[in-house]
Structure formats: structure tokens, C-alpha cells
Amino acid sequence: MKVMLSRVMMVLLTCFLSSTQVLAAEKAEDLYKNYCWQCHGMTGNGNGVNVRDMSVQPRDHTDAKEMSARSDDEIFKAIKEGGQAISKSVLMPPWGGVLSDDEIHSLVKYLRHLCQCSGNQ
């Protein structure tokens, strides 16, 4: 009985702690590994494990020429609302609602680090 009670307490505790708070913000690098690797690849070069049967190649995030053609705002919009929001492929998913705006901003910065480029032309 004691064992059962303490387990119930534990579940209650973890439950209230985790479900009543907003998710803690994660590091950009971890966000990229979790959500973006699958298509953009472990090095960000656009050759992720999913590309075999994809009709449009994911953007090479290390390509300074391609990546500097977009402003930070456009990249933010592509990540938040998906490829279609910037007249690109539906294969680039929308991540708004899954990621917070702060997390998306941190990803834009991380992409600038990957391409070693900036977006102001």
C-alpha cells in the first residue's frame, strides 16, 4: 500500500509539473537535430535520410550563395509557416505551433552559422 501511494504521488507530481508549464526552450542545435536532420541531413547539406523518394531536394543549408538570397524574415516565415508560405515546396513543413517563435529565431541564427553567411543584400 505504501509503495502504491508513493507511486501515485510521483505520478501526480510529474504530471502537474510537466503538464501545467509551457515546454522549456531548447538549444538551436538540438532543435535542428531533432526536427531538421531527417530531411536536411546531419551536416545540413540537404541530403537527409528521407530524401531518397522526395521530389524536391531540401535546401543545402551550408550553401552560402543560396542561403544569402533570403532575408532572416523570409527564413523565419519558411520555418514557421512552411515552404508554401514562400511559394516553395509543401515538402518543407510548417513548424509553427510545434516550435515557439523564440526557438524559430534561434534556428534562423543557427542557419546563418551553418552557411557562414548573412541575408542582407
Partner: peptide, 12 residues
């Protein structure tokens, strides 16, 4: 998945 992929010649 990230624990079970590696870089290959033509991608992950």
C-alpha cells in the same frame, strides 16, 4: 532516428 543514421557517399 538520429541515433541510427550515418553519413554515406550520397547523403545520410
Amino acid at each position: 532516428y538520429g541515433r541510427h543514421i550515418k553519413e554515406g557517399a550520397d547523403g545520410d
